[in-house]
């Protein structure tokens, strides 16, 4: 079964080349807006998405952006990386039919965006700054569901029996039935797309950051953000709340109950401001 599932990774679309080329440019200190614009314009879908994302209230640009050059020069490097990752990842979510976990592809996308927004709220609050690596990891954390969905759909009765009658979390049921879970599978997909180790591991361990031998904050941020989004009702599908909350998370982040409630308000606010981004898929 594992072999078969791992083999399905081949079926997932290649990551948009435009995005990879843009990331290489953005990682250089001396990129020019003109260079970026040439690459973006080569890809119509990315161009359209970049304009929609740049105009969402989330990025708070004062003027309405009409051209790619304008978007690229106004957004700044941090927001550009996010915009371009979001534009690229949204295309993949649109291309792969979501099955098993969700009834529509947009459900999984909205959850992914909500977790990405939440990860930045927590990062600002706890570390005083936003974090693009965390943003990308959060956006991609459930990417494994795009492949796993097909298998989950076939084995739904067995999985739900374990979850509703035998006290398993959905993730544990996946492991028992398939020998692999959607997070591990997601890590492999990120590897295929050549994402750095930090992002791959955050995806792979987003339900079990305690299993990572090194102490790294990104998987814990994704773990907690995932729970916030799911509790808000913006879950990643049928497994939504049937997941385990690691009890060391809150003390680690030193969050009081009041902070948690305030975070819900902030997430609600950001989801509203990022409405255009949430509606991309």
């Amino acid at each position: 079964m594992i072999e078969k599932i791992l083999n399905s990774i081949k079926a997932i679309p290649a990551f948009p080349e435009t995005v990879q080329r843009l990331m290489i440019l953005l990682n250089r200190e001396d990129y020019s807006v003109q260079e970026l614009a040439t690459v973006v314009k080569y890809d119509q879908a990315v161009t359209a998405n970049v304009l929609r994302i740049a105009n969402s209230a989330y990025f708070g640009l004062r003027e309405k952006v009409k051209s790619v050059e304008q978007a690229l020069s106004l957004l700044g490097r941090k927001n550009l990386i996010r915009t371009i990752q979001t534009a690229g990842v949204s295309r993949i979510f649109r291309a792969v039919p979501a099955r098993g976990y969700v009834t529509t592809g947009s459900e999984l996308w909205q959850h992914s965006v909500a977790v990405a927004l939440m990860s930045q709220i927590l990062s600002r609050r706890i570390r005083g700054e936003e974090d693009n690596v965390l943003y990308t990891a959060a956006l991609l954390h459930d990417v494994g569901k795009m492949i796993m969905g097909e298998y989950v759909e076939e084995a739904m009765t067995a999985i739900m029996d374990k979850v509703t009658r035998q006290g398993y979390s959905f993730l544990e049921a996946e492991e028992e039935v398939f020998g692999i879970n959607h997070a591990e599978l997601g890590g492999k997909i990120a590897e295929k797309w050549k994402y750095p180790e930090e992002i791959r591991d955050a995806i792979r361990y987003h339900h079990r950051p305690d299993l990572l031998s090194e102490e790294r904050p990104v998987p814990w941020f994704v773990h907690l953000s995932d729970q916030f989004a799911s509790l808000m009702g913006v879950d990643g599908g049928i497994d939504g709340l049937a997941c385990r909350a690691l009890e060391q998370t809150i003390p680690m982040f030193q969050l009081r109950h009041k902070d948690l409630e305030t975070c819900f308000i902030l997430l609600h606010q950001d989801m509203d401001r990022a409405k255009d981004v949430m509606n991309l898929v």
Binding site: S169, Q227, S230, L231, L241, A242, C243, R244, A245, E247, T249, I250, H257, L260, E261, F264
Partner: peptide, 14 residues
């Protein structure tokens, strides 16, 4: 008012 599994000690928001 739902909650996450084993959420005995932190969110309890539900």
């Amino acid at each position: 008012g739902a909650s996450i599994l084993d959420d005995t000690n932190f969110f309890r928001i539900g």
